[in-house]
Amino acid sequence: MCRTLEGVATVDHHVDVSSTVVVPANSSDDLNLIPPLNFAMVDNGIFRSGFPDSANFSFLQTLNLSSIIYLCPEPYPEGNTEFLKSNGIKLFQFGIESHKEPFVNIPEDAIREALRIVLDARNHPVLIHCNRGKHRTGCLVGCLRKLQRWCLSSVFDEYQRFAAAKARVSDQS
């Protein structure tokens, strides 16, 4: 006897499942849900990632996003802008330049304004992203974590998990 559980065929306990093939009940399009680089849930209704491209659009649609916070100065690509328009997603852009140490200047006013947007539940679900979802996104999420009263070691651990070998002491400070 076969039954469906969340789109996957499962077999009752009477049958030897070692030889059972599990087949998705939905179309092959459902198998093309590809999250953007460094995608993760930050909190209820708040997500982070690297720059999404067209391969990620189907996945992003499943999030029912209201807003995107883009932390880079470069113009948003036309294909991405069309995706936002067709899905009713607002774009908030903060042109924070990418800096490598020792020349670091993360503008506090831009981070404060981006935090206001993140904290406003009317903008949820919201995706925060920069190019790779590491440094600028990590700084904004780190500031959010401080507002959530996380201890610094936990904030730094989360930053390190996404930045990996490219972690910057200046971003953490």
Rank of each mutant, 00 (worst) to 15 (best):
D29T: 04
D43A: 12
G45P: 11
I46G: 01
P24K: 04
L37C: 15
A40P: 03
F47A: 04
N32I: 06
V42D: 00
S28I: 15
V23R: 14
A25Y: 10
S49A: 15
P35W: 00
V23A: 07
A40N: 13
V23N: 03
P52Q: 10
V23I: 14
S28V: 15
A40F: 01
P52R: 12
V23S: 02
L33V: 14
D29N: 09
F47I: 01
N32Y: 10
G50I: 06
R48G: 11
S27K: 12
S28P: 01
N44Q: 15
M41H: 10
D43I: 02
S28F: 02
M41K: 12
D29Y: 02
G45D: 04
P36N: 02
P24W: 08
N38T: 07
F51D: 06
N38A: 03
D43H: 01
L37M: 14
N26K: 14
N32G: 02
L33P: 05
G50W: 12
G50A: 07
L31E: 14
I34C: 06
N44A: 14
P35F: 09
P24C: 00
V23L: 05
N44E: 15
F51H: 13
V42F: 00
N44S: 15
V23W: 09
M41D: 02
N32V: 11
P36V: 13
F51M: 15
S49K: 08
A40W: 06
P36F: 05
S49W: 06
V42Q: 02
N26C: 04
A40Q: 10
D29S: 12
A40K: 03
S28Y: 06
L31W: 03
P35E: 13
G45V: 05
R48A: 13
I46R: 06
I34L: 11
D29I: 09
M41N: 01
D30L: 10
M41A: 10
L37T: 12
P36L: 04
L37K: 14
N38F: 04
G50D: 12
L33D: 01
I46K: 01
P24E: 02
R48C: 12
S49G: 00
V23F: 02
D29M: 08
L33Y: 00
F51Y: 14
V23D: 00
P36C: 06
N32R: 12
N32S: 14
M41Q: 07
G45N: 03
D43N: 05
F51W: 08
R48M: 11
R48K: 13
M41F: 01
A40I: 02
P52I: 10
R48P: 11
D43Y: 04
R48N: 06
N38K: 04
I46W: 02
I46A: 07
M41R: 10
F47T: 05
G45L: 06
